[in-house]
Amino acid sequence: MNKLIEGRVFKFGDNINSDIIIPGRYLIHIEPDKLAAHAFEVLGDDYPGRLRGFEILAAGRNFGCGSAREQAATALIGLGFKAVVAASFARTFYRNAINAGLPIAECPELVEAVSEGDSVSIDLIAGEIRSGDAVYGVPRLPESVRRILEAGGLAGYLKAHYRA
């Protein structure tokens, strides 16, 4: 996990479920690029194309609700997102993002304040997010979670720590 994550924001509303992020028919794939090619396509023909070029996904309440499909997180990585900030997350997505190595943070104040295209920088070690002149505090990650993100996800963590 990079200490500082910087990029431009794409913004979604509340209750974006994991069927929207990646429809069930594509769960035969686990590769980020194959998943990204179909991410959010139920929202219209301009998706996922219009998500390219943004690094930070900002969303409202309950992001990633519904199915526990891990590929929802993998698809976002495939689209080039480096972090997700939401007003709140569904618990399955929260775990899957960490396990896939995708940094995430709950920060309703930031989501309220930013618009599409705004530049944001996230420092999860320090527990703060900056946008323009504003600084927002976010909860620091529990030790167990931080170690998984630093290994690039749970598979990387296992590879480094598991003795067969």
């Binding site: 686990i30 526990a68 499909r69 891990e70 997180a73 618990r91 399955t92 775990r95 899957n96 396990n99 896939a100 996800g153 749970l154 598979a155 296992l158």
Partner: peptide, 10 residues
């Protein structure tokens, strides 16, 4: 409770 496939492997 539900978890992802990587966590199942773990």
């Amino acid at each position: 409770t539900g978890i992802g496939y990587t966590e199942v492997a773990s």
